[in-house]
Design a protein around this nucleic acid. Structure first.
Length: 941
RNA sequence: GGGUUCGUAGCUCAGUUGGUUAGAGCGUUCGAUUCACAUUCGAAAGGUCAGAGGUUCGACUCCUCUCGAGCCCACCA
């Protein structure tokens, strides 16, 4: 074995062996376990990997996911659970298409339109295949023990089938509709954007205050006068006294040449202090105004089209928005209607892809209704019954409210409910090419076909999508002109045309926990219902146990999975949601390419080893809190990996040596447990078993950092620094290898590579990965041993401290005398240990005795410890030191006395607390007495 | 504007239902080096737990307010 652990040389080989063994697959692990059946009933533990986007390579955030999930999976596998971790990738429609378009532009100077849909999708296919291969390699590099045989992709055959089935089911249940809604429209990309794809940019804008016309009694303020061409009302706060008399009145006005019919309506959302307190309502181009229009039955007039040009206003027809704005403002000014022009700060909504400013428009899109009710077919959700009429929102809220889905950390419950409460219908159609094609076909009705030149069934044609032109605003029943077919396969007949749009990528991601577990031979099931009912993996592993992901996609993804799964299966997708935070740099900044502070998980894994990277991502990170990461931190854990390596190396060398040396006699004495009579062994076994119990408990409760921290401190601060050091005094320590083996098991989920390698080196059965998780023995947890050993440790520390303080040559062996009182028998047995660890020539332990000459002293736990110095002693320094200690003790004593004088404390605090304080008082008094005696004695020198 | 989290040692953070003289890692200082490991070992310094009130026998922990920082959502007409 190498002196220094070299992860680079061994990691890939170990992973290959794991993979070859087949033990990532739960079917293969079955039957490998022996003890577990007595220990814990075999239960399923399943997790579906949040699928990385096929847009590129893994970043540090993925590494966090992979590490935490692998810890859980490895722990449960060793625990004997039927453990599945299913890997996969996400096609990430918009992101991937954008990326490929960019590459296409760079390399060939072409746009997707130059290639055409079929050819372009071929290019995307090539790109994603390459990207997937990279991602697979990276997932393996992180040591992830996922079952590759069940790998899934959001756009593969099985998942595509599931998507179409779900779409149809929702349509049939009246949950999917095609409708006219205000959408975020990017004129440059010619596509709608989801609410969360819109970014806000603070800017300075002109706020104009004016009257529509001379005969209109109210002035309004706006930054976008051009939209006022489509106004159908003016809204004021109902509490606003200025406008009270005008409420409900209607006016016909001539607004810069555009005839408008305006009603004055009340809306509580209006801020009386902003502008004039009156707002022009433009239902076609503002979300809020659209809602007001619904409530007040207002007309909806579209005045801006998909290209961002004015329509339905003859005087400004065809102008782009900003041009018309100037014209309108000029006209208002010339009419003397413009009252004020000021500069304010506001947020401009822009496209997250191209940065162009967003135009809210009425557009024909496909939606999932979150509030429409449907009849529940079957339900395993507490509080929801079969046959009950509920909405998707009801389902998603109930599944968390009733405790079936638990979110860690808990505070995200609130965030989740808040978000659900305000959830609007979900626009699922996207005007891009890459993704799941909508399973929707249109056919012109014969009479319509003859009468119109523009084909009505093309959803891209402005006449069909928009409501502009001659067809007027509020009643766009284009259904009159076309038939719609929703199905799994395309309909028969040649005159059906498929909807060119694709689905929002989150539609397929929303099905992820169950679509991945569906039987891939879907042909053999009669219908969707049977496919869902009979798929073996779905029965065995769903609902999944844990969904582990970043809190940043709670809404994007987690909420949508809950929505979709509770609807499709009548069952929750997962029992627990564990949310981790973002990885930031050492200054707390987000990692970004532009800042140049990105830590690439694979680069650092290469440099410091995967195990070290894994530890750095888990330890010191609380659930849901952001985590700061630096290379120094990773290097620190690399050091720990090496420490573990060397512990293993040492233990191995000792056990081999011991084997050779061991006589029959020794074997017999071992058998009768003579060695466990030693304090240090009782202590280390006690500690080990406490640690096993605590770490197991922590892992069950998602306290990964705490578990790792406990293991780290036990391994380094107790096992290595004390037990192993002690083992050097007297050989023949059989606990050495037992403890080491247990330790390797406990560490395995955190650092799978080094532990597996050490396990192999120690001759353990293949593989540590499927070895049994340790069980704590309560019998061995021994408080007395802990306390006794703590005294030995403290005495050794005190001697080391005195040596350092008085600058005693570390090479020098010194003499120590201890007046141990009642502790004499205890200390007497441990002389060898004290001598060795404190580097002493001799230790004299008596019950009580005189202070030795030329010595310095300390008092602890009822013992007086004298360090006998052969040379001159700096008594001034010693006096100073003792005085300091005396002062501290007196201070402490005063506090205790005060507390105990307090009658309320005595009467109200629990007995054991009071008793504890009394004991402390006694001990401190004793200590002070001894220090005083000693101090008095010092004067005599 | 609504919501939410945080403020503990120079830095990064733990501190579980209120009860030990508040802990760790890194960094700093002092010292060690053939005996598993310098990716090591020993020791030390360093904190009014942001501030002010309150509840309590007792507050880092619970409540209120103030100050400071972050994040999410909504969006400014």
């Amino acid at each position: 074995m190498e002196k220094v652990y070299n992860p680079k040389d061994i990691e890939d080989g170990i992973y290959r062996e794991w993979e070859k063994s087949g033990f990532f697959n739960p079917d293969k692990v079955k039957g490998q376990k022996s003890r577990i059946k007595d220990y814990r009933k075999r239960q399923a533990f399943s997790m579906v990997m949040p699928p990385p986007n096929v847009t590129g390579t893994l970043h540090i955030g993925h590494a966090v996911v992979l590490t935490l999930e692998d810890i859980m999976v490895r722990y449960h596998r060793m625990m004997g659970d039927d453990t599945l971790w299913l890997p996969g990738t996400d096609h990430a429609a918009i992101a991937t298409q954008t990326k490929v378009e960019k590459l296409l532009k760079e390399k060939e100077g072409k746009s997707r339109h130059d290639l055409g849909r079929v050819e372009f999708l071929k290019r995307v296919e090539e790109f994603t295949a390459e990207s997937k291969a990279t991602i697979h390699k990276q997932i393996r590099k992180m040591g992830s023990s996922c079952d590759w045989s069940r790998e899934a992709y959001t756009l593969d055959k099985v998942r595509s089938r599931a998507v179409r089935e779900v779409f149809k089911k929702m349509y049939d249940d009246g949950l999917i509709y095609r409708g006219l809604r205000i959408v975020n429209w990017c004129p440059r990309c010619a596509s709608t954007l989801a609410d969360d794809e819109v970014e806000y940019k603070e800017q300075e804008a002109n706020l104009y205050t004016f009257k529509y016309s001379k005969n209109f009694p109210v002035s309004i303020s706006t930054t976008r006068p051009e939209t006022k061409l489509g106004d159908t009302a003016v809204a004021v706060n109902p509490a606003d006294k200025r406008y009270k008399n005008l409420l409900g009145k209607e006016f016909d006005v001539d607004f810069v040449g555009q005839p408008l019919h305006l009603k004055i309506i009340a809306d509580r959302g209006i801020d009386m202090n902003f502008g004039t307190g009156a707002v022009g309502v433009t239902p076609a181009h503002s979300f809020i105004d659209y809602e007001m229009a619904q409530k007040n039955k207002l007309k909806i007039i579209q005045v801006i089209n998909e290209e961002g040009r004015i329509v339905n206003a003859p005087q400004y027809q065809g102008l782009i928005a900003t041009e018309s704005r100037q014209k309108i403002v000029a006209k208002l000014a010339s009419q003397g209607l413009l009252e004020k022009e000021e500069i304010i700060k506001n947020n401009l909504s822009v496209c997250y892809r191209c940065g162009a400013s967003i135009e809210p428009l009425p557009s024909k899109q496909w939606f999932i209704s979150v509030s429409a009710k449907f009849k529940v077919q079957s339900s395993k959700i507490k509080g929801i019954k079969k046959g009950q009429a509920v909405s998707l929102k009801d389902l998603a809220i109930t599944a968390v409210k009733n405790g079936q889905i638990k979110i860690f950390p808990e505070r995200f419950n609130k965030v989740y409910f808040e978000w659900m409460k305000n959830l609007r219908d979900w626009c699922i159609s996207r005007q891009i090419w890459f993704g799941h094609r909508l399973p929707v076909w249109y056919k012109q009705k014969s009479e319509a076909r003859n009468s119109k030149s523009t084909p009505m069934f093309s959803p891209y044609s402005p006449t069909s999508r928009g409501i502009g032109g001659d067809r007027g605003g509020q009643n766009p029943k284009s259904k009159l002109d076309e038939e719609i077919y929703i199905g799994i396969e395309s309909p028969k007949g040649s005159d059906w045309v498929q909807d060119p749009d694709t689905l929002d990528t989150w539609f397929s991601s929303g099905l992820w926990t169950f679509s991945t577990l569906l039987d891939k031979d879907f042909e053999k099931y009669k219908n969707f219902g049977k496919w869902l009912q009979k798929s073996p993996d779905l029965k065995r592993f769903h609902p999944t146990s844990v969904m582990e992901t970043g809190y940043d996609i709670l809404f994007f993804w987690v909420a949508r999975m809950i929505l979709m799964t509770t609807y499709v299966l009548g069952e929750i997708p997962f029992k627990t949601v564990y949310l981790h935070g973002l990885v930031r740099d050492e200054k707390g900044r987000k990692m970004s390419k532009s800042l140049g502070n990105v830590i690439d998980p694979l680069t650092v894994a290469e440099k410091y080893g995967t195990d070290a990277v894994r530890l750095s991502l888990v330890l010191g990170a609380a659930a849901g809190n952001d985590l700061t990461l630096s290379e120094e931190k990773i290097a620190g854990f690399r050091n720990f990996t090496n420490k573990l390596w060397n512990i293993g190396r040492y233990v191995l060398s000792q056990t081999e040596e011991q084997k050779n040396r061991e006589t029959k006699e020794q074997k017999v004495s071992k058998f009768f447990g003579s060695s466990v009579s030693r304090l240090c062994e009782r202590w280390i076994l006690s500690r080990l078993n406490s640690v096993i119990a605590e770490v197991t408990e922590d892992l069950e409760n998602f306290r990964f950092s705490q578990a790792g921290e406990k293991l780290r401190s036990f391994t380094w601060d107790e096992f290595a620094d004390w037990y192993i050091e002690i083992s050097k005094v007297e050989k023949n320590f059989q606990q050495l290898s037992t403890i080491n083996q247990q330790l390797l098991k406990l560490w395995h989920p955190f650092m799978p590579f080094v532990t597996e390698k050490l396990w192999e080196a120690a001759g353990g059965a293949k593989f540590l990965m499927i070895a049994d998780w340790p069980i704590a023995s309560k019998k061995l947890i021994n408080k007395k041993a802990g306390k006794d050993f703590a005294l030995i440790q403290e005495i050794i520390r005190i001697i080391r401290n005195l040596r350092a303080e008085f600058k005693i040559d570390p090479a020098l062996f010194v003499k120590v005398a201890i007046n141990a009182g009642a502790k004499k028998p205890l200390l007497g047995k441990e002389v060898a240990i004290i001598k060795h660890l404190a580097r002493l020539e001799s230790v004299k332990i008596v019950k009580s005795g005189e202070k030795p000459e030329r010595s310095i002293s300390a008092v602890y736990g009822g013992c007086e410890i004298y360090l006998i110095l052969e040379g001159l002693v700096d008594f001034e320094k010693e006096k100073e030191r003792i005085q300091k200690e005396l002062d501290a003790a007196k201070n402490y004593l005063a506090g205790l006395e005060n507390k105990l004088k307090n009658k309320d404390f005595i009467s109200r605090a629990p007995k054991e607390i009071v008793g504890g304080e009394k004991l402390k008082l006694k001990e401190t008094q004793e200590k002070i007495r001894k220090l005083k005696d000693y101090f008095a004695g010092l004067k005599n020198f």
